[in-house]
Computed example of a mutant assay.
Amino acid sequence: MAQQEYQKYYVPESSPWPIVGAVALFLIAVGAANFTVEMTKGKEGFGGWILFAGIAMLIFMVTGWFRNQIHESMSGLYSDQLGRSYRQGMAWFIFSEIMFFAAFFGALFYARTIAIPWLGGASNNAMTNEVLWPGFEAVWPLLQTPGGIESTQMGWFGLPLINTLLLLTSSVTCHYAHVGLEQNKRKQLSVMLALTIFLGCIFLGLQAYEYIHAYDIGLTLDSGVYGNTFYLLTGFHGLHVTLGTVILIVLYFRVQKGHFTPDNHFAFQAGSWYWHFVDVVWVMLFFLVYIL
């Protein structure tokens, strides 16, 4: 009976990066919350500095962790079994992100189809409606708060439509970059990946400009449930596009160093999966937030 051959399974040493990342995310959460309150109410505080410290620590963590991972990969420490583990881990990570956005889309669905009709007197709640919000009209988007703050709806035509076309185009260029890697066409890989990064940066710049325009027309975080859901969904998506762009930039520099081959390029594949995921989320967001 032939002896079964086992592959080695690399187990890295204890790493400081998880705890550094946890502290960075905590500082970002605290800093962002305080900075938002300070900006909304016109107060001065330390929210912006805490947010900046968290972002700086997160960049430091990502840089160090990526460096360690690249060194391990290029040193030949990984096996086929470890590669399968990475694929499973990335699949579960994207699934968790799907659930993350599903929660916010669920909140939007609840507000539009349950809470607002209920306030409008649906399900025999006429008296409750008059007590809670006299004269309330069950329409979406809800452009007025009980306190009398009025806002304006953000239309789908213009910047949102341009950003949608940009992300859809970037998904195509990312796919052809992957095809170029699989076919060992390094020039196609570099050009298409660089174009994908460029389109992602343009998207982020236009989204920042859109936020400036939104505040000019009165759509702010004080604009009730419509403003809250708008900024939560578009803001968190923008954060994911930022992360995806950073990942693609790292992959681009690795491509220039010749790190990937047609048979060994899971890091590139994982980055491609993530980028296609944020593109799909934006298409859903475009229809559910801007159009419907």
Rank of each mutant, 00 (worst) to 15 (best):
V179H: 08
T152E: 12
P160I: 03
F157K: 07
T145G: 14
G147E: 14
Y176D: 03
L168R: 01
T164I: 07
E150M: 15
M154W: 08
A177W: 09
L165R: 02
L161A: 01
C174N: 14
I149E: 13
G147M: 13
P160C: 00
G155K: 13
P160W: 00
I162R: 02
T152K: 11
L159G: 00
S171Y: 00
S170Q: 03
G158A: 11
H175V: 04
T169G: 05
C174D: 02
Y176N: 11
I162Y: 05
G158E: 09
T152P: 05
H175A: 06
F157V: 12
V172R: 02
F157Y: 15
A177N: 04
P146T: 13
I162C: 10
G147H: 13
T152R: 10
V172N: 07
S170Y: 01
G158P: 07
S171P: 05
T152G: 09
L168N: 04
T173P: 06
G147L: 14
M154T: 00
L159E: 04
N163S: 01
H178C: 06
L165C: 12
L161Y: 05
P160V: 04
H178T: 04
Y176W: 10
G148D: 10
M154G: 03
P160S: 07
Q153V: 13
S151V: 06
I149N: 13
V172W: 05
I149T: 15
L161T: 11
C174F: 12
H175I: 08
L166V: 05
M154V: 14
P146W: 08
N163G: 06
T173N: 07
L159A: 03
Q153S: 12
N163Y: 01
Q153H: 10
Q153D: 11
S170K: 01
T169L: 11
Y176A: 06
S170T: 04
I149F: 15
M154L: 15
T164S: 06
Y176V: 09
G158Q: 03
I149K: 12
T145A: 14
T152Q: 10
G158N: 09
G158V: 02
P146N: 12
I162N: 00
Y176P: 00
L161H: 01
L161R: 00
T145L: 12
T173H: 01
